[in-house]
Computed example of a mutant assay.
Amino acid sequence: MSRTLVVAEAALRELLRRRTVLVILLLMPLAFYLSRRGDFLGQSIRFVCLGLAWALSTAALFAGSAARGMEPRLRLSGYGSRHLVLGRLLALWTVGVLLSTPYFLLVLADQRDVRYGAIALIMALTVFVSVPFGLLLSAVLPRELEGTLVLLTVVGLQMVMDPAGSATRALPFWFSRELATYAVDHTDGGYLVRGLTHGLVFAVALTVLVVVAAAVRLRQRRHLRLAT
Rank of each mutant, 00 (worst) to 15 (best):
L56C: 01
T4A: 12
S44L: 05
S77T: 10
A55L: 01
A91K: 04
S35A: 15
G42T: 04
R17W: 06
S100V: 08
V97H: 08
R36P: 05
G69V: 11
L34H: 04
A118I: 10
G69R: 08
E14N: 13
L121E: 01
L84S: 09
R115G: 06
V107F: 00
A120T: 11
M70F: 09
V48D: 10
I119E: 03
A11E: 12
S100E: 07
R3P: 03
S2R: 14
L15D: 06
L106A: 01
L34I: 15
F32W: 12
P29N: 07
L12Y: 02
S35D: 10
D113G: 08
Q43A: 09
D110Q: 13
L99G: 01
Q111I: 06
F40C: 11
G87Y: 06
I45H: 04
R3E: 13
G87S: 06
L86D: 07
A67I: 03
T101K: 04
A59Q: 09
A8W: 02
V114H: 02
V107T: 01
F32L: 05
I45D: 01
L41D: 09
R68N: 11
G42V: 02
A109I: 12
G38V: 14
R115S: 10
A63E: 13
Q111M: 03
S57T: 08
A66G: 13
L27C: 12
D110F: 13
I122S: 04
L15E: 12
Q111E: 14
R19C: 02
I122R: 01
L30V: 08
I45L: 12
S81F: 03
S77D: 14
L108A: 09
V97R: 12
V85A: 12
S57V: 01
G64E: 07
A31M: 14
V107Y: 00
Y103P: 00
A91N: 03
L16S: 15
V85W: 05
R19N: 03
D113E: 14
F62H: 05
G80E: 08
L86V: 12
I119P: 01
Y103Q: 00
R88D: 12
L61T: 04
F62W: 09
L16V: 13
D110I: 07
L26F: 14
G80Y: 09
L27R: 03
L74N: 05
L34M: 14
A63D: 08
R73L: 15
F32Q: 05
G69K: 11
A109Q: 11
I24G: 04
V48W: 04
F32P: 02
V97I: 15
L61W: 02
G80P: 03
A11I: 03
S57L: 04
F104W: 10
T101Q: 08
A60Y: 08
A59F: 03
L90M: 14
Q111S: 10
L86F: 10
A109M: 13
R88M: 14
G117L: 05
M70Q: 13
A120R: 07
